[in-house]
């Protein structure tokens, strides 16, 4: 009888005092706590600035890209009108040159940072991650420089 009552009482006791001297609560470090063991590479706020950049560039890109789509694909006959003459007409104006340059840089950096996140999430092997990101950065630098060069050196009388 006496053993039965003690057995029944124990689980209730354990629930009331989940943590006591014999069962200390596990110490959980805040997720981003920096300790002496934190590698130097992760002591900057790079990821926070990346997160902020995605939101700020995103707002600007909504205007730049939707305006671009409206002009290229919706207004004035849609895709029919696009050709060398149409590009020459638009890039005759510094306004559209700056528009396209800003769109190129922001969209490429926004997309590159997005794909960096995707690679970090799904590529589990260190070497796979390294080479995929190396390929991404190389392609991004190449494309941004090529596009910038094209906008700055465009010649309507090329022939």
């Amino acid at each position: 009888m006496s053993t039965e009552t003690t057995q029944a009482a124990e689980p209730e006791d354990a629930q009331v005092t989940l943590y006591d001297v014999d069962h200390p609560a596990p110490v959980i470090e805040p997720p981003r706590a920096r300790t002496g063991k934190t590698p130097k590479a992760s002591r900057t706020n790079f990821e926070m600035y990346g997160w902020l950049f995605m939101r700020l560039s995103g707002i600007v890109l909504v205007v730049l890209v939707l305006g671009h789509l409206l002009i290229q694909l919706v207004l004035d006959g849609g895709v029919s009108k696009i050709g060398f003459a149409f590009v020459a007409g638009r890039w005759a104006s510094p306004f559209w040159q700056v528009w396209d340059l800003a769109m190129l840089w922001l969209a490429m950096l926004h997309g590159a940072n997005g794909l960096r996140t995707v690679i970090n999430d799904y590529a589990e092997r260190d070497t796979t991650r390294f080479w995929l990101k190396w390929l991404l950065y190389a392609a991004t630098v190449f494309t941004v420089l090529l596009g910038t060069l094209v906008i700055f050196t465009f010649d309507p009388n090329i022939r």
């Binding site: 090529l146 596009g147 060069l149 094209v150």
Partner: peptide
């Protein structure tokens, strides 16, 4: 799209 646009530097 950047590659196809770059063709304006090749020829019309």
């Amino acid at each position: 799209h950047v590659l196809d646009t770059a063709l304006v530097r090749v020829s019309p």
